[in-house]
């Protein structure tokens, strides 16, 4: 829910432009993980590795509930956010409102179909993340739903206990420990960050659906899929979007937090039964009369 943006809206932009941006972003952020080499057995290196690991744990904790979001180009992001709101108000929202008039069954099937098209790429990313069980679930879902589910329009796999999940290259990079980088609001595509922009370019190139249609008479299909996904998810989340728009005093800040937390949750792949992130709220953490821990952190 609440995916005002994200990879579901992918492929709307020109792939070429995205790649340029991605290369730029890649040169800025992939460098961060290139800190291995030298003789790994030397004690000094061992100590460094240990420190890096501690640092990674600390970053992982910092990425938990409510940590600050790095937004160095906020004014630019806010500008594109307003552009996107305009596009939403005059194009996406009216289109999805028309789509919303279709019977629920038709819309559910559309969602199933779009999800099924994404599944092969989910399998590949599960594999790259070393998630064997999840990859198996996704493979089973793809075959069951494509064959019994009539090309994916129905989701019998879910009834059989294979719950759906989505993976993409940005999540794989996250699982590998690549940091988010700066928060970015992309024109048309919405919320992203330094890491996800790279993931997005990889998705555009390597998603089997895009690979199979590229250079064929179906080369329009990725764009059609992106458009359909945008309309479908805008409709599915219209209530939540309306609520956010109505209740926020600063919609940009709210959308930024919601999309960042959702993205972090997608990357954690947390067990639904585990305790979700919530901030420290004991008296000492809350702002009081004198300096407290929360104030010190501000």
């Amino acid at each position: 829910m609440l995916s005002l943006s994200n990879s579901d809206l992918s492929k709307l932009g020109s792939v070429r432009r995205t790649c340029l941006t991605a290369l730029l972003a890649a040169s800025l952020f992939v460098g961060a993980s290139a800190a291995r080499a030298a003789d790994p057995s030397s004690p000094a290196i061992q100590a460094q590795i240990a420190q890096v690991e501690i640092a990674q744990v600390e970053i992982a904790q910092a990425n938990q509930a409510g940590s600050e979001i790095w937004d160095p180009i906020e004014p630019v992001n806010r500008y594109f956010f307003e552009v996107n709101r305009f596009l939403d108000e005059f194009i996406l929202k009216p289109t999805s409102a028309w789509y919303g008039l279709l019977p629920q069954g038709v819309r559910t099937s559309t969602g199933n179909f779009l999800g099924n098209l994404r599944t092969p790429w989910t399998v590949a990313n599960d594999g790259l993340q070393g998630e064997g069980t999840r990859a198996g679930t996704a493979v089973a879902r793809f075959f069951i739903n494509t064959i019994i589910g009539f090309f994916g329009f129905f989701d019998p796999a879910k009834e059989m206990g294979f719950a759906p999940h989505d993976e993409d290259a940005g999540q794989t990079l996250g699982a590998w420990g690549v940091q988010e980088g700066p928060y970015l609001m992309l024109p048309v595509l919405g919320s992203s960050n330094g890491r996800d922009i790279v993931g997005f370019a990889v998705d555009a190139f390597l998603d089997p659906f895009n690979l199979l249609t590229r250079g064929t008479r179906l080369d329009w299909a990725p764009y059609a899929r992106a458009g359909a996904s945008a309309v479908h998810y805008r409709d599915a989340n219209s209530q939540q979007i309306d609520d956010l728009q109505r209740s926020s005093t600063d919609l940009y800040a709210t959308v930024r937090r919601v999309s960042v937390e959702r993205r972090r949750a997608e990357i954690r792949n947390a067990d639904p039964g585990s305790t979700p992130p919530s901030p420290r709220m004991t008296d000492g953490d809350l702002p009081g009369n004198s300096g407290s821990r929360a104030d010190a952190a501000q």
Partner: peptide, 11 residues
Amino acid sequence: DVSMAITQRDD
């Protein structure tokens, strides 16, 4: 997975 307290604070 989205804490309303945190979201409210950002807003």
